[in-house]
Each structure stands twice: as C-alpha cells, then as structure tokens.
Amino acid sequence: MAASCGRSLGKVGRSFVDSAAVLRSGSGSFLRGTAAARSSGRCYGSGGPGVRAAALSVRAAAGRRALSCAFLLGGGLGLYQAVRGSLKQQHLAQEQNQVSAGSLKLILYQYKTCPFCSKVRAFLDYYGLPYDIVEVNPVMRQEIKWSLYRKVPILMVDGDVQLNDSSVIISSLKTFLINKEKSVSDIIHCYPEMKSVNDRGKEVTEYTNKYWLMLSEAQTASVYPEKGMQKEEMKWRQWADDWLVHLISPNVYRTTGEALASFDYIVREGKFGTLEGFFAKYVGAAAMFVISKRLKSRHNLQDDVREDLYKAVNDWVAAIGKKRKFMGGDQPNLADLAVFGVLRVMEGLQAFDDMMANTKVKSWYRRMERATLNHEGRSQQ
C-alpha cells in the first residue's frame, strides 16, 4: 500500500506514504537474581578420670576442636569460593548474552504508518532490542538521501551495516540472536539482492532466502522442535507480505470519508511540512480513493472489500487453532509478529474497528499487543 500511494501522488506532485499505524513501544528492565550458600558444623570432645588425665584430655579435646574448626573453616571458605565462582560465571554468561543481543546500535528509518515498518517495530519491541527511530519525510525523503535503496524500512546496525526489506531485517536479526558466532554483516550475505522486472515493466529488488533463518541443523531443531513448524512459519510470513498487506489500502481508503480520515491520521503521525500536509491530506486522500478501486480490481477483491479482510483474518485465526495461543505455540513466532505488524497499521481507523467486531481475531491480537509491549521475547534470548 505504501508503494502504490507513493506512485499515485508522484503523478499529481510528489510521492506519499500510505496506510495507518499505531506505534506502541515501551521499556523494560532486566531482572537479576542472587544466591548465597551457608554451612555450619559442631565438634565434640570426651574426658577421663584424674586431674592430669582431665587436663590432657581437655588440651587434646581443645586441639581436636581447633583442628576440626580449621578444617571446617577452610572447607566452608572453599565451598563459599566455589559457589561464588559458579554464580559469577553464570552471571557473566547471562550478561554476555544480554550484551550480545542488546549492544547493537540500531537506527530504524521509517514511515510510522507503513505496514512493513510496523512489522520491524513489532519484532524489535517483542525481543526488547533498543533502537532509535528516524521518521522519514515521505515527500522529500531527505533523511535517506545517503542510501541507494530509496524505500523504508531501512535498519542501520552499528552505523555501518545497512539492512533493507522488512523480512530480511527480521530474519537477519533473529539469526543473530540465536547464532551469536556470526556478526550481522556476515549474516546479511546469506540474503543476496536480486533485481528483476515485474509484470508492469518496473524494476524491482527482491531478496533470496528472506524467510529463512541461517542456522545450523542443531539450532534449527531447537527453534523448530516439531515437524512442519518451520514451513508453517515461512508460509504465513510470505502470506502476510503477498496477500494481507494488499488488503490494507482498499479497506482504509474504501470510501471518501475513510480515505480522508486515513490521510488525516497519516499527516498527524508522519513527518510533513504545513503545505505538504495539506496537499497530502486532501489530494492524497482523493488519489488513494481512486487507486484503491484499481487495487481492488488488480487483486480480484470482492465489491465489499471488508469481506476479503474478514476472511483473511479468520483464515489466520483458524490456522492457529483453538489449542495454541499463537502460531508459534505458547510464544509468538515470526509469522505472529508479521501479521500483527501489518494489522496494527489500521488501528484507530474504521477498518480496524470493523475487523475487531466482525472476526475472531481480537483475543489473539490483544495477546500479541501485550507480548510486544512487555518485551516478552527477551526470555527466549
């Protein structure tokens, strides 16, 4: 939807972002535990008849007690040092894991109302990875003029590694969180860039393997312990990109009133100048209302595009089933985060309210909302 909006407004003046989203992010803290070990002992002595014997017995008993206490003291100190060393090693290991995952300096270049950017934010928030945001002006795009890649999202890692395409960003970072032996710059080579011409004669950039995690056989078995889990996750991640995203524009620009409301939100949340905002709100809304009709035809949607949205969302819920909280089981997987990120861009608009009222997605959506806000993926690192 972002691309189609940009192309349409380019014809009437400049390119604009489409879709609408609500960014919800929070901050959390790591919980650290401590432990201690304690030991105690008792010594016993005996005596015999007679003063000398008693004195000797007392001195001997005292010597034995002193020797026993020395051994106990030494043993206690040794035990304390052993426990302390073990706890220190555990703490260092935990700290190292946290540093490996959280020490990356991440800068996300985005349109706040872009569904693909929302996917990336959902992933970063869920795993508790700190990141900075640079909101890109969708007309001039000066914030990314340094990049040959002129789309968003763009994620810069440590100031020198550039990740493009939302699915590549997510797969690369997830691989890094699991396989810390490789750097992000090494991992990105596993997702080579390919250029081709689409059916409309436009050159497009695609990425090979973008739904795969680059893991060893043992790591793959750990992440996907049950047969079919990996294929299921990849299938629904691609479904979110190839189908679900294309239902957003026709639904949020379904009527002139909805189109105006959508662009009103886009202007408020985006980075527009005064004149750009005015142009975007009124000219953009009119343009996208017309384009949404073309998109409906291109994707063979029903006359009432809400029905396609409802069906898609209910298909997703049915695929999760009644026995699982998420597609990933007890915790969200990458497909959960992708679908949540896409649907979230409609929040605050009529299409979102209708979807929540007329489908079975609400319970899953609220669970996903809590999981990302609370950074519940930290426990999986």
Rank of each mutant, 00 (worst) to 15 (best):
K227E: 09
R141M: 06
V152Y: 03
S196W: 12
V157A: 01
G228F: 13
S172V: 09
N179P: 14
V139D: 00
E206F: 14
L213A: 07
M156I: 10
Q142P: 00
Q219R: 11
M229A: 10
M214A: 11
W212Q: 09
V184T: 01
P225L: 11
T208D: 12
G159Q: 06
Q162I: 03
V223Y: 05
E206H: 15
P192D: 13
N209L: 10
E135T: 12
M194K: 13
D186I: 07
R150E: 03
Y211H: 12
E226W: 12
N164Y: 02
Q162E: 04
C190E: 14
D160A: 03
V197G: 07
V197S: 06
R141C: 11
D158H: 12
V136D: 00
I188M: 01
I133C: 09
D160N: 09
V134E: 10
Q219Y: 15
Q219V: 15
S147K: 05
M214R: 14
V152N: 02
P192F: 11
V204W: 08
K151S: 00
I187M: 11
N209E: 12
C190R: 09
I187E: 02
L163Y: 01
D186T: 08
L163P: 01
K195H: 09
Q142V: 04
P138M: 05
M229K: 07
I144Q: 00
R141W: 00
Q162L: 07
G228D: 08
K210S: 05
K210H: 07
S171E: 14
D165T: 03
L148H: 04
R150C: 00
V139I: 02
S183C: 05
K202M: 05
S147V: 05
L213T: 08
W212Y: 10
T175C: 10
